[in-house]
Nucleic acid binder design. Sequence first.
DNA 1: ACATTACCATACTGTCCCGTTTGGTAAGTG
DNA 2: CACTTACCAAACGGGACAGTATGGTAATGT
Lengths: 168, 168
Amino acid sequence: MDEIARTAGVGKDTLYRRWKSKETLVQHLLSELSAENAPIPDVEDPRYALFIFLQNIVRLNTRSDFGAILAGIVGESARNREMATAFHQFWAERRTIAAGLVRRVVGPGASDREIGQILDHVLGPIYYRLLLSGDPIDDEYLWDLIVALPWSTGETPDQEQPTEKELK
Amino acid sequence: MDEIARTAGVGKDTLYRRWKSKETLVQHLLSELSAENAPIPDVEDPRYALFIFLQNIVRLNTRSDFGAILAGIVGESARNREMATAFHQFWAERRTIAAGLVRRVVGPGASDREIGQILDHVLGPIYYRLLLSGDPIDDEYLWDLIVALPWSTGETPDQEQPTEKELK
DNA sequence: ACATTACCATACTGTCCCGTTTGGTAAGTG
DNA sequence: CACTTACCAAACGGGACAGTATGGTAATGT
């Protein structure tokens, strides 16, 4: 808090006038950063859109302080009940966003439960590597995740990956 | 620390005589608890063995303080470099154990990279729910994870799940 | 019997950090 | 000008926690 106020050139007073507690601030911060740095890609191909989305998530977690913040919240949620609920609510928001992308990939026939499972299959390994094992995540890994989606539409996807240039 | 000493009926003095710092204690604790509460199941059926293994992981994280400890370490690893390396090493150990179980499921033909990916597919969703989304994990969910293994041997597994009684 | 050692329990120190309070400053309003 | 409002900065209070120090107790060794 002190550091946030200092680096923001703002009084802690002002922070607490805008947000009721540290938890609400963090929750707002997570949603804001996520929406800004990992938005819904404006791409027509469903799989490619999902790929870019995942790529942005990885970039956000590895190239900025977001990953460290996230890890810190995980630890704090273990002891702080309010923080835990705020954290879970954040993930619920993010999941609905990602669910739209996934549904475009697997088709509208999938049930909510199926969509949820697919989300776990896509996001789980990513955050498992980011937060726990520490193994690196490259584009090929992300693409394999998408290709391996169990409920993918039957058409065999071409394994070719988009070049770095296309991402921008 | 105070709580550990108190619940253990031991003086904090003694704790610090046996372990140099809190970090070393926690590291020892992780390996010990994992090996003790999530061992390699002595079951002949590979999928069932993997199922029990995952079930023990979930139980360890939800029914004891292990989950909270784990989350705390995640947070601390974000700022403590030594803790991060020790943490990653812990996961490497655990992965090799789980890799043996997975290899029994998918057959000896799988490469190390494939095994690694499968491990991510199995463990990722579990820890994603445990640490991040907070969604509950029941036996059906675990079984679906195993059934969905992309490199499973061709035989279609029967969806029937083992009863609670068989677990002991 | 005496010294040493191991040990539990508790108190203590230093640190960190959330949230509040206070003092001082500048802008806007009547 | 008087008054309110918003704001930064710093200090403060309180609680949590890691690690150390101290006192007392029991066992062991000589």
